[in-house]
Nucleic acid binder design. Structure first.
Lengths: 378, 378
DNA sequence: CTGAAAGCGCTTACAG
DNA sequence: CTGAAAGCGCTTACAG
């Protein structure tokens, strides 16, 4: 008996890979016929197709991704470049959740997401150029949109499938997906109004972000519309600015009964100041955050916040990206898509408001569900 | 004059792509020479190499990734499969930070990370098989390691580069990277002992996780070693279990003066129970968490926690993955690597302890830095 | 509906 | 040190 196990033909893995030529030989057809059969294209009879597929399965054939790509097939990859340090990305709850949502939809469509961290906008644009040049991606997702973003004209010029996350109004001729901040503002204001608040302050983040301007505009507009007394206080960015702005607001001759913060971090800083000044929440001042997170949920009392679900946002972006790629390839939009949107059309994510004890006194004492269960049982 | 702009040759992009054949023609050499030149391999004189590289740059040549892969070059891609729903991943701070760290190192080495979300362990193993079968990845990173993990033997059988994140002792013959939980436990216990605590409780998570067992073992061992009074309370998983266990511990005839929790969520639930029972932190009971997060940092008082830096963890995993791939390809380990570790060797991440007011009364009133600054200035 | 061929853009031996 | 050729595994026209 000669050794029949262990002696692998050569190199890594077990033996030579199975190709369509092997299948063709076994099936008594040409490799072109195999290609048509496995790609579900017309040109072979149903009988031979079945036979070919059977053999392919039997031989455990896997298509060579490289060969397909070289022959001109889509590479089934979406790219995303991040021009922020890993430490910053890692500290943000949004990033992980957004990526998870993207992945879910892309994975299901057998697409993969390719990411790259770079250290400048120039490097980012260069990466787009190279990715498309190398045919490594079928399309790219652009994030962290800014005012007058140089990446927009660069991508427009490349004339390749690209989706902008953010907006509105600053994505040029590119398709985009963004959260409706006007609607978010409306949800907050109407919620507070329904609880009887008529003096409301908004502690706003830096105007560098597009959404800040959008919120400012809607906030002012709703104040006039509803005839309420609205105060806007610019806080710059971060917790320190928010703390300062909150103190400022409390010094007013007739302080507001509710304060709306632009982020979870800002809301927490504001709540800290209120606690210091012995102002009860929500009895003295109600608190709302535009951004939900473990911080707002874990606070005592839990803070009412806009829940835009970063996971859902990622899913929507992936869905739209796939449509853009399909349309560019001249293929009909994927099934499940409602109609076939024009390439440059935007899609809007509708925000929701998670009402918690920081605005609604009836919810005081109710911690987040999991905790509540534990305490009941103890 | 005929139109020389606007009339793009055909298809998407501008014109036919530049290939090494074009460069060869211009340089008066064969395409093989170009290949050697651009890959920095011997076989061409320095003069011709320079000339070739100059022309390549001038023509803005980009290598075809697909062609390279088809011809046998590495695909420069690392794969990671996640068998958890996007919602769960998105809710975890660890995921985003780990991915950011991975990305940083892989991007710098011109590798990309390919992820896929699946819904079962079988699908995960199948994905590995297919990825390697299609030559879509050069190696894979395995996460969420469990006891008797079926993915380990499956990957061992595939005999392809794979790195296990987690351990020790459960990664079979595969190389791994993990955080040193024994050291983490030692840091916590020694910190508490130095503050004079001699009755310490540990509220432990589910024993399904390898690290739980490791912590249990070290905790018990240190108790004997230092002659302290140690109590272990199993809490199962999550906040409710932790709340129950904390209540249990407080009912003891001689309650501990410090409680160590297995996660940030558990620590928060425990702190909530202490607050309910009017037990001051850290005056009545000191609190420590094995997991740092915005929850522990944002709590009042901020909670002392093990900081293992998920970003750093990701970086270490990527670094090790690249070494494993290089070694498998017969290449020397990347520069910067200390020595050339054997394939199956593990690497250990050293944890740190972030000391905060939940254990050290001297730090009471000190919120996290950013906040503190804001308050000083207001 | 099926066959034979060319081509995608590289890399890798193998001669000179 | 350089040239000519084969081959990686597919897809896509183009004839029969």
């Amino acid at each position: 008996m000669t050794s029949t196990t262990g002696d692998q033909p050569r190199g890594t893995g077990r033996g030579k890979r199975v190709t369509i030529a092997d299948i063709a030989r076994r099936a008594g057809v040409t490799s072109a016929a195999v290609s048509l059969a496995v790609n579900g294209r017309p040109g072979v009879s149903d009988a031979t197709r079945e036979r070919i597929l059977g053999i392919a399965r039997e031989l455990q054939w896997e298509p060579s991704h490289a060969a397909r790509a070289l022959a001109g097939a889509p590479v089934k990859t979406v790219g995303m470049v991040l021009a922020r340090p890993a430490e910053v990305l890692g500290a943000e709850a949004f990033f992980g959740a957004f990526v998870a949502g993207l992945q879910e939809v892309l994975s299901a469509a057998d697409y993969s997401l390719q990411m790259k961290i770079v250290d400048s906008t120039e490097a980012e644009i260069d990466t787009y150029r190279r990715w498309f040049g190398q045919r490594r991606v079928d399309g790219v997702v652009l994030v962290d949109l800014q005012t007058d973003d140089p990446r927009i004209p660069a991508l427009e010029q490349l004339a390749q499938p690209a989706l902008v996350v953010g907006g509105p109004g600053h994505h040029g001729s590119l398709p985009s997906v963004y959260v409706d901040d006007a609607e978010a503002t409306r949800l907050i204001v109407e919620h507070l109004a329904s609880l009887g608040h008529s003096r409301i302050a908004r502690v706003a983040g830096t105007a560098e972000f597009l959404h800040t301007m959008q919120r400012n505009r809607t906030f002012t507009q709703l104040g006039e519309e509803l005839g309420l007394d609205f105060v806007q206080q610019d806080a710059g960015y971060g917790a320190s600015g928010a703390a300062r702005a909150t103190a400022e607001v409390l010094r007013m001759p007739e302080p507001p009964t509710a304060i709306v913060f632009d982020s979870d971090e800002m809301a927490l800083a504001g709540a800290y100041v209120l606690r210091e000044r012995q102002v009860p929440i929500p009895g003295g001042v109600a608190v709302v955050s535009y951004e939900d997170s473990p911080l707002t949920r874990g606070h005592h009392p839990p803070i009412t916040a806009i829940r835009r679900s970063a996971v859902e946002y990622g899913r929507a972006a992936a869905q739209r990206m796939l449509e853009v790629i399909d349309t560019a390839a001249g293929r009909p939009a994927a099934p499940g898509a409602i109609g076939t949107p024009a390439q440059a059309e935007s899609r809007v994510i509708e925000p929701q408001l998670a009402v918690r004890a920081s605005t609604d006194p009836a919810l005081l004492g109710v911690a987040h569900t999991d905790l509540a269960v534990g305490l009941d049982a103890s």
